[in-house]
Design a binder for these strands. Sequence first.
DNA 1: CCATTCGTTGCAATCGTGTGCAACAAACGA
DNA 2: TCGTTTGTTGCACACGATTGCAACGAATGG
Lengths: 360, 360
Amino acid sequence: MPRTHKRKRFKKVVTRIPVSGQRMQMQDIANLAGVSTSTVSRALSHSSLVNDETRTRIAELARSHNYSINIGARNLRLQHSRTVAVVVPYDVRTRQHISDPFFVSMLGSLADALTEQGYDMLLSRVDAERLDLVAQLEASGRAIGVILIGQWHHHDQLNELANRKVPLVVWGARLPRQTYCTVGSDNITGGLLATQHLIETGRRRIAFFGDPELPEIGQRYEGYQRALKHHGIPLDARLVVAAEFSEGSSRRAVDALLEKKIVFDGVFASSDLLAMRAIGALREKGLIVPRDVGVVGYDDIELSQYFHPSLTTIRQPILKGGEALVNALLALVANKALSSEVLPTELVVRESSAPSPAPP
Amino acid sequence: MPRTHKRKRFKKVVTRIPVSGQRMQMQDIANLAGVSTSTVSRALSHSSLVNDETRTRIAELARSHNYSINIGARNLRLQHSRTVAVVVPYDVRTRQHISDPFFVSMLGSLADALTEQGYDMLLSRVDAERLDLVAQLEASGRAIGVILIGQWHHHDQLNELANRKVPLVVWGARLPRQTYCTVGSDNITGGLLATQHLIETGRRRIAFFGDPELPEIGQRYEGYQRALKHHGIPLDARLVVAAEFSEGSSRRAVDALLEKKIVFDGVFASSDLLAMRAIGALREKGLIVPRDVGVVGYDDIELSQYFHPSLTTIRQPILKGGEALVNALLALVANKALSSEVLPTELVVRESSAPSPAPP
DNA sequence: CCATTCGTTGCAATCGTGTGCAACAAACGA
DNA sequence: TCGTTTGTTGCACACGATTGCAACGAATGG
């Protein structure tokens, strides 16, 4: 650390000699402008305490020497990092979920919303079994709070984090006895709309693909049940297949149904990815969508419209979701009221659920 | 700022009174352990200068009060942020590219590689027209360097950044007269493999979808040309359609070919997304893939295997790519040699290019 | 002519941590 | 017994910025 020694020798020296290649700092600009660092600081933060002429001169100097203020030092002084951590839980075994296109779009939406508010975004993958580590992101001052994408089955750990007063907002389902704040879509209505649509297009034996143990999926399943009940269709437990997000799961789900000779004419898949894989598996078995089986997915990821057949699905409001997550976190940090938020969902009708032509 | 005032009054006080709700800091741990902050600092950084018994006692105290060290302050002192900025250029008009699944997978791979090396990842979207702003990420000390995903047509701006000594590594093509460092896949060989494969499966009139003005695409196009030449197939400029990444582009490309009655039996699309859209557009026109037209994509995104027909494509080494980008940046920051890197690509054969059955 | 106000600037303390140097006790050797 | 070494710890300053307070000249008012 050569500079350390230099500074020591001169001790009370005011005129810092900018070593070439060394990063510019406020003192350098101050020297160039013939003022103190106080004035430079005030000028660059548009304080009204500084003369207009001085301000513009300093601003000009700063720009022409492409000086930019040291964020770390400023944050330390201001006790504020203007940074939000976005965490994607990471399952060491499957590694599957960060690649879910839905989460990814959410990432983009978050990036926009945060930029809009002038915040930086720190992206972390955290081992899902060590979710307690996210507390460090805030405790270490790296970020003012955490947005977690992917509730999964970590309800208890998330509650514990919230109880430890970690500023935390989760994308997911609102659950009973939850102390953390969630933002999510209306999964029950979503499930209901999807199932209802399949019923209205003439299906009666509708399978559900997804793991109802996961909160969000559970609520979609709830909507599925309500729709069936409303139309007087009895629930057949054999039609509920706990397909996960992992790769071969949909295929196995379809296989299981077919092998047991369980008849079905509709599938409500709890994500678009699952739906696409299911359609592929069905096709392998010689079943054509939508002629033999109507399929509805969930998420409305970008590829759903290019898929063949294009996918009927429940659109989650990604843009609004990102904004809502950010707003919720900022409110939480500011100690404002922390009510969880449920955003509306919408049915998007495409080819995969087209009514099968009436049998001749 | 209540604490500021408190501290002022007591001035030389050593025993900081931890206000409830206030964040723990090193001084608090020091008080609890009855030592100075120096010792705590050394203990937590595993310095050999501290007694073993003292170290474990301090470590225990820190853990039980879940104290974690203030990263900002440490970074300021150490003059090092252990953070890498990952930038995705952002086209205000199209907004399209961050959603490309390939970039997204790269993001995941980068997150892994950085975590592995103990670095944080700062994710930014930057207006593609203001790429000069990425210099600030480093100049402000937010990050030690920048990894940029998406070279696009910004060659000159990137060169300028590199000339300004901004530590920068770009995912993209290696170009002549380039002063910045790139990591990318072997696009020429990729394009060659793809085209060769279409030729070997019996196609002769092979269209190219993509904008050869973009460096990576241009190199894939170069490979396309070489393959044609090698097999003695004349290049037909009308078969080259500068489809962009935006939505309707593939459709228009297909429409353009068909309207002009230009015959073709193969398509090499310069990305999987483009390929999928092209297949959809072909289907709308009554052309079946692979029977009437063989299609090969590029990237091997996850969905390619679930698409129908499953997509023959050129796999880009995403995992290795992320590692290579990170290694390159770290080397660059350490002033090591900065050679651009070209990673091998691989042909993945699936259904979309299956040889059409010999006409009876 | 002096007191006061106003506009502008600088001094110095501060944010939380790391580390060179000195201090100090215990152990050791002569 | 005393100097030297060794192991452990604390003091004080530095990292690069912000800001309360004081200072100071000019303008203003009485």
